[in-house]
Design a protein around this nucleic acid. Sequence first.
DNA 1: GCTGATACCTGCGGGC
DNA 2: TGCCCGCAGGTATCAG
Length: 281
Amino acid sequence: MPELPEVETVRRGLQPHLEGQRIARAEARRPDLRWPVPPDLVQVLTGARVTALRRRSKYLLADLDRGGTLLMHLGMSGRMLVEGAGLAGFHRDPAILPRHDHVVLLTEAGTTITFNDARRFGMVDLIREGAEHPLLAQLGPEPLEPGFDAARLRAAFAGRRVPVKQALLDQRIVAGLGNIYVSEALHRAGIDPRRVAGRIGAQRVAALVGHVRAVLAEAIAAGGSSLRDHRQATGELGYFQHSFRVYDRAGAPCPTPGCPGTIRRIVQSGRSSFYCPQCQH
DNA sequence: GCTGATACCTGCGGGC
DNA sequence: TGCCCGCAGGTATCAG
Protein backbone atom coordinates (compact mmCIF):
# COMPACT_ATOMS: atom_id res chain seq x y z
CA MET A 1 0.00 0.00 0.00
CA PRO A 2 1.76 2.96 1.29
CA GLU A 3 4.31 5.18 -0.33
CA LEU A 4 5.90 8.20 1.27
CA PRO A 5 2.76 10.41 1.33
CA GLU A 6 0.64 7.70 2.93
CA VAL A 7 3.29 6.92 5.56
CA GLU A 8 3.71 10.62 6.32
CA THR A 9 -0.06 10.97 6.66
CA VAL A 10 -0.13 8.04 9.08
CA ARG A 11 2.75 9.56 11.04
CA ARG A 12 0.93 12.87 11.40
CA GLY A 13 -2.20 11.08 12.54
CA LEU A 14 -0.33 9.00 15.10
CA GLN A 15 1.90 11.75 16.43
CA PRO A 16 -0.52 13.38 18.90
CA HIS A 17 -1.45 9.98 20.32
CA LEU A 18 2.01 8.48 20.59
CA GLU A 19 4.64 11.19 20.93
CA GLY A 20 5.32 11.96 24.59
CA GLN A 21 3.14 9.05 25.68
CA ARG A 22 4.24 6.15 27.85
CA ILE A 23 3.34 2.67 26.64
CA ALA A 24 1.43 1.01 29.45
CA ARG A 25 1.02 -2.31 27.69
CA ALA A 26 2.30 -3.92 24.53
CA GLU A 27 1.17 -7.11 22.81
CA ALA A 28 2.85 -8.98 19.97
CA ARG A 29 0.05 -11.23 18.81
CA ARG A 30 1.62 -12.63 15.67
CA PRO A 31 5.40 -12.82 15.48
CA ASP A 32 5.76 -14.28 11.97
CA LEU A 33 5.61 -11.14 9.87
CA ARG A 34 7.94 -10.62 6.91
CA TRP A 35 10.74 -10.59 9.45
CA PRO A 36 10.10 -12.13 12.85
CA VAL A 37 9.00 -9.67 15.51
CA PRO A 38 11.84 -9.46 18.09
CA PRO A 39 11.12 -11.81 21.00
CA ASP A 40 11.80 -9.03 23.51
CA LEU A 41 9.58 -6.46 21.78
CA VAL A 42 6.94 -6.46 24.53
CA GLN A 43 9.55 -6.24 27.26
CA VAL A 44 11.36 -3.34 25.58
CA LEU A 45 8.20 -1.36 24.84
CA THR A 46 6.31 -1.84 28.10
CA GLY A 47 6.85 1.23 30.27
CA ALA A 48 8.86 3.11 27.63
CA ARG A 49 7.95 6.66 26.67
CA VAL A 50 7.95 7.63 22.99
CA THR A 51 10.04 10.78 22.70
CA ALA A 52 9.61 11.33 18.96
CA LEU A 53 7.73 9.79 16.04
CA ARG A 54 9.68 10.16 12.82
CA ARG A 55 9.55 8.96 9.23
CA ARG A 56 12.42 7.82 7.03
CA SER A 57 11.42 6.78 3.53
CA LYS A 58 8.43 4.47 4.04
CA TYR A 59 9.46 3.56 7.59
CA LEU A 60 7.97 4.90 10.82
CA LEU A 61 10.39 5.29 13.72
CA ALA A 62 9.34 5.76 17.33
CA ASP A 63 12.25 6.82 19.54
CA LEU A 64 12.12 5.47 23.10
CA ASP A 65 13.26 7.30 26.22
CA ARG A 66 15.13 4.24 27.43
CA GLY A 67 17.19 4.14 24.23
CA GLY A 68 16.51 2.41 20.98
CA THR A 69 13.80 2.91 18.39
CA LEU A 70 10.70 1.03 17.33
CA LEU A 71 10.86 0.57 13.55
CA MET A 72 7.72 -0.11 11.52
CA HIS A 73 7.00 -0.65 7.82
CA LEU A 74 3.45 -0.99 6.54
CA GLY A 75 4.35 -3.23 3.59
CA MET A 76 1.54 -3.22 1.05
CA SER A 77 -1.52 -3.64 3.24
CA GLY A 78 -0.43 -2.43 6.67
CA ARG A 79 -2.44 0.09 8.71
CA MET A 80 -2.07 1.84 12.01
CA LEU A 81 -5.38 2.11 13.86
CA VAL A 82 -5.95 4.57 16.68
CA GLU A 83 -8.85 3.88 19.02
CA GLY A 84 -9.89 4.76 22.52
CA ALA A 85 -9.98 7.73 24.85
CA GLY A 86 -10.69 11.09 23.26
CA LEU A 87 -11.61 9.50 19.95
CA ALA A 88 -15.37 9.34 20.39
CA GLY A 89 -17.07 8.96 17.07
CA PHE A 90 -14.34 6.85 15.53
CA HIS A 91 -15.62 3.46 14.54
CA ARG A 92 -13.34 0.78 13.29
CA ASP A 93 -14.11 -0.30 9.74
CA PRO A 94 -15.61 -3.80 10.13
CA ALA A 95 -13.67 -4.84 7.01
CA ILE A 96 -10.44 -4.51 9.02
CA LEU A 97 -10.28 -7.97 10.48
CA PRO A 98 -9.02 -8.26 14.08
CA ARG A 99 -7.21 -11.48 13.18
CA HIS A 100 -4.66 -9.30 11.35
CA ASP A 101 -3.93 -7.17 14.44
CA HIS A 102 -0.28 -8.14 14.88
CA VAL A 103 1.09 -5.61 17.38
CA VAL A 104 -1.06 -3.63 19.83
CA LEU A 105 0.11 -0.76 22.05
CA LEU A 106 -1.94 0.76 24.88
CA THR A 107 -0.75 4.17 26.07
CA GLU A 108 -1.14 5.58 29.57
CA ALA A 109 -3.69 8.01 28.11
CA GLY A 110 -5.90 5.05 27.25
CA THR A 111 -5.36 5.09 23.49
CA THR A 112 -4.93 1.82 21.65
CA ILE A 113 -2.62 1.83 18.63
CA THR A 114 -2.83 -1.28 16.47
CA PHE A 115 -0.59 -2.45 13.64
CA ASN A 116 -2.89 -4.42 11.34
CA ASP A 117 -1.55 -6.04 8.17
CA ALA A 118 -3.53 -8.64 6.25
CA ARG A 119 -0.76 -9.57 3.83
CA ARG A 120 1.99 -9.55 6.43
CA PHE A 121 4.48 -7.84 4.08
CA GLY A 122 4.96 -5.21 6.78
CA MET A 123 7.42 -5.41 9.62
CA VAL A 124 7.99 -4.36 13.21
CA ASP A 125 11.52 -4.36 14.58
CA LEU A 126 13.73 -2.69 17.15
CA ILE A 127 16.79 -0.57 16.49
CA ARG A 128 19.06 -1.04 19.48
CA GLU A 129 20.64 2.00 21.02
CA GLY A 130 23.66 3.11 19.03
CA ALA A 131 23.06 0.61 16.25
CA GLU A 132 22.16 1.26 12.64
CA HIS A 133 19.40 -0.85 11.13
CA PRO A 134 20.45 -2.61 7.90
CA LEU A 135 17.16 -1.70 6.21
CA LEU A 136 17.87 2.00 6.70
CA ALA A 137 21.58 1.91 5.96
CA GLN A 138 21.38 2.04 2.17
CA LEU A 139 18.42 4.37 1.71
CA GLY A 140 18.89 7.27 -0.67
CA PRO A 141 17.97 10.90 0.01
CA GLU A 142 14.55 12.02 1.16
CA PRO A 143 12.87 13.50 -1.92
CA LEU A 144 11.42 16.46 -0.02
CA GLU A 145 14.69 17.45 1.58
CA PRO A 146 17.58 19.47 0.11
CA GLY A 147 19.77 16.38 -0.31
CA PHE A 148 17.64 15.35 -3.28
CA ASP A 149 18.55 17.55 -6.23
CA ALA A 150 19.21 17.35 -9.95
CA ALA A 151 22.95 16.81 -9.62
CA ARG A 152 22.54 13.94 -7.20
CA LEU A 153 19.79 12.25 -9.21
CA ARG A 154 21.79 12.60 -12.42
CA ALA A 155 24.81 11.06 -10.72
CA ALA A 156 22.65 8.20 -9.45
CA PHE A 157 21.27 7.60 -12.96
CA ALA A 158 24.70 7.72 -14.59
CA GLY A 159 25.59 4.40 -16.19
CA ARG A 160 22.28 2.81 -15.21
CA ARG A 161 20.77 0.93 -18.11
CA VAL A 162 17.48 0.15 -16.40
CA PRO A 163 14.25 1.93 -17.35
CA VAL A 164 13.78 5.19 -15.43
CA LYS A 165 10.63 3.77 -13.84
CA GLN A 166 12.67 1.02 -12.26
CA ALA A 167 15.46 3.38 -11.23
CA LEU A 168 13.04 5.64 -9.37
CA LEU A 169 11.65 2.66 -7.50
CA ASP A 170 15.17 1.83 -6.30
CA GLN A 171 15.17 3.10 -2.71
CA ARG A 172 18.95 3.60 -2.86
CA ILE A 173 18.49 6.28 -5.52
CA VAL A 174 15.62 8.11 -3.87
CA ALA A 175 13.79 6.95 -0.75
CA GLY A 176 10.04 6.71 -0.47
CA LEU A 177 8.78 6.58 -4.04
CA GLY A 178 6.51 3.71 -5.07
CA ASN A 179 4.55 2.60 -8.09
CA ILE A 180 1.86 5.29 -8.00
CA TYR A 181 3.94 8.41 -7.59
CA VAL A 182 6.64 7.31 -10.01
CA SER A 183 4.01 7.00 -12.75
CA GLU A 184 2.54 10.38 -11.81
CA ALA A 185 5.90 12.19 -11.66
CA LEU A 186 7.07 10.74 -14.98
CA HIS A 187 3.88 11.87 -16.68
CA ARG A 188 4.25 15.39 -15.33
CA ALA A 189 7.87 15.40 -16.51
CA GLY A 190 6.93 14.07 -19.96
CA ILE A 191 9.36 11.15 -19.62
CA ASP A 192 8.52 7.71 -20.99
CA PRO A 193 8.83 5.17 -18.13
CA ARG A 194 10.73 2.83 -20.46
CA ARG A 195 13.47 5.37 -21.17
CA VAL A 196 16.91 4.24 -19.99
CA ALA A 197 17.73 6.16 -16.80
CA GLY A 198 21.34 6.88 -17.69
CA ARG A 199 20.40 8.49 -21.01
CA ILE A 200 18.11 11.24 -19.76
CA GLY A 201 19.51 14.72 -20.21
CA ALA A 202 20.39 17.06 -17.38
CA GLN A 203 17.51 19.45 -18.01
CA ARG A 204 14.94 16.69 -17.99
CA VAL A 205 16.40 15.18 -14.82
CA ALA A 206 16.18 18.61 -13.18
CA ALA A 207 12.54 18.91 -14.23
CA LEU A 208 11.86 15.41 -12.93
CA VAL A 209 13.20 16.37 -9.50
CA GLY A 210 10.73 19.24 -9.36
CA HIS A 211 7.82 17.05 -10.40
CA VAL A 212 8.70 14.33 -7.88
CA ARG A 213 8.70 16.93 -5.13
CA ALA A 214 5.46 18.50 -6.32
CA VAL A 215 3.48 15.31 -6.64
CA LEU A 216 4.58 14.09 -3.21
CA ALA A 217 3.80 17.43 -1.56
CA GLU A 218 0.36 17.55 -3.15
CA ALA A 219 -0.36 13.97 -2.10
CA ILE A 220 0.65 14.65 1.50
CA ALA A 221 -1.59 17.72 1.56
CA ALA A 222 -4.45 15.52 0.34
CA GLY A 223 -3.88 12.91 3.05
CA GLY A 224 -2.37 10.37 0.67
CA SER A 225 -4.20 8.15 -1.79
CA SER A 226 -6.89 5.71 -0.70
CA LEU A 227 -7.10 2.82 -3.12
CA ARG A 228 -7.73 -0.56 -1.61
CA ASP A 229 -6.23 -0.36 1.83
CA HIS A 230 -4.91 3.01 2.84
CA ARG A 231 -6.60 4.85 5.67
CA GLN A 232 -5.25 7.64 7.81
CA ALA A 233 -4.57 6.69 11.42
CA THR A 234 -7.99 7.99 12.42
CA GLY A 235 -9.71 5.93 9.74
CA GLU A 236 -10.29 8.84 7.36
CA LEU A 237 -9.67 8.40 3.65
CA GLY A 238 -6.99 10.24 1.72
CA TYR A 239 -8.25 11.78 -1.48
CA PHE A 240 -5.22 12.25 -3.76
CA GLN A 241 -6.44 9.35 -5.91
CA HIS A 242 -8.91 11.82 -7.41
CA SER A 243 -5.90 13.79 -8.68
CA PHE A 244 -4.21 10.88 -10.46
CA ARG A 245 -3.36 11.87 -14.02
CA VAL A 246 -2.31 8.43 -15.25
CA TYR A 247 -2.22 5.87 -12.45
CA ASP A 248 -4.99 3.26 -12.93
CA ARG A 249 -6.46 5.31 -15.78
CA ALA A 250 -5.68 3.04 -18.74
CA GLY A 251 -7.89 3.89 -21.69
CA ALA A 252 -8.75 7.37 -20.41
CA PRO A 253 -7.79 10.51 -22.35
CA CYS A 254 -4.47 12.08 -21.40
CA PRO A 255 -5.15 15.03 -19.07
CA THR A 256 -2.35 17.14 -20.55
CA PRO A 257 -4.02 20.13 -22.24
CA GLY A 258 -4.03 19.71 -26.00
CA CYS A 259 -2.67 16.14 -25.92
CA PRO A 260 -4.74 13.72 -28.03
CA GLY A 261 -3.19 10.68 -26.34
CA THR A 262 -4.80 7.84 -24.40
CA ILE A 263 -3.33 6.52 -21.17
CA ARG A 264 -1.73 3.12 -21.62
CA ARG A 265 -0.86 0.41 -19.11
CA ILE A 266 2.30 -1.64 -19.55
CA VAL A 267 4.09 -4.08 -17.26
CA GLN A 268 7.68 -3.36 -16.20
CA SER A 269 9.50 -5.76 -13.89
CA GLY A 270 6.18 -7.40 -13.18
CA ARG A 271 4.48 -4.17 -12.09
CA SER A 272 2.01 -1.89 -13.82
CA SER A 273 3.17 1.38 -15.32
CA PHE A 274 0.76 3.97 -16.69
CA TYR A 275 1.80 6.60 -19.21
CA CYS A 276 0.74 8.60 -22.24
CA PRO A 277 2.57 7.49 -25.42
CA GLN A 278 1.84 10.86 -27.03
CA CYS A 279 3.36 13.27 -24.54
CA GLN A 280 5.91 11.10 -22.69
CA HIS A 281 9.14 10.47 -24.57
C1' DG B 1 28.20 -4.92 -9.76
C1' DC B 2 24.08 -4.86 -12.51
C1' DT B 3 19.74 -6.81 -14.05
C1' DG B 4 15.57 -9.49 -14.17
C1' DA B 5 12.83 -12.95 -12.04
C1' DT B 6 10.91 -14.79 -8.05
C1' DA B 7 8.99 -15.29 -3.53
C1' DC B 8 6.61 -13.81 0.47
C1' DC B 9 0.76 -13.64 2.03
C1' DT B 10 -3.96 -12.43 1.79
C1' DG B 11 -8.02 -10.27 -0.13
C1' DC B 12 -10.67 -8.63 -3.86
C1' DG B 13 -12.81 -8.28 -8.32
C1' DG B 14 -13.82 -10.10 -12.80
C1' DG B 15 -14.94 -13.85 -15.75
C1' DC B 16 -17.06 -18.12 -16.47
C1' DT C 1 -23.97 -18.52 -6.53
C1' DG C 2 -19.55 -20.30 -6.40
C1' DC C 3 -15.08 -21.24 -8.10
C1' DC C 4 -10.79 -19.93 -10.29
C1' DC C 5 -7.47 -16.75 -11.75
C1' DG C 6 -4.98 -12.54 -11.93
C1' DC C 7 -3.63 -8.58 -9.69
C1' DA C 8 -2.35 -5.46 -5.83
C1' DG C 9 0.60 0.32 -3.07
C1' DG C 10 7.04 -3.35 -1.24
C1' DT C 11 11.43 -5.33 -0.91
C1' DA C 12 14.99 -9.07 -0.20
C1' DT C 13 17.26 -12.66 -2.48
C1' DC C 14 19.07 -15.41 -6.08
C1' DA C 15 20.77 -16.71 -10.64
C1' DG C 16 22.77 -15.23 -14.89
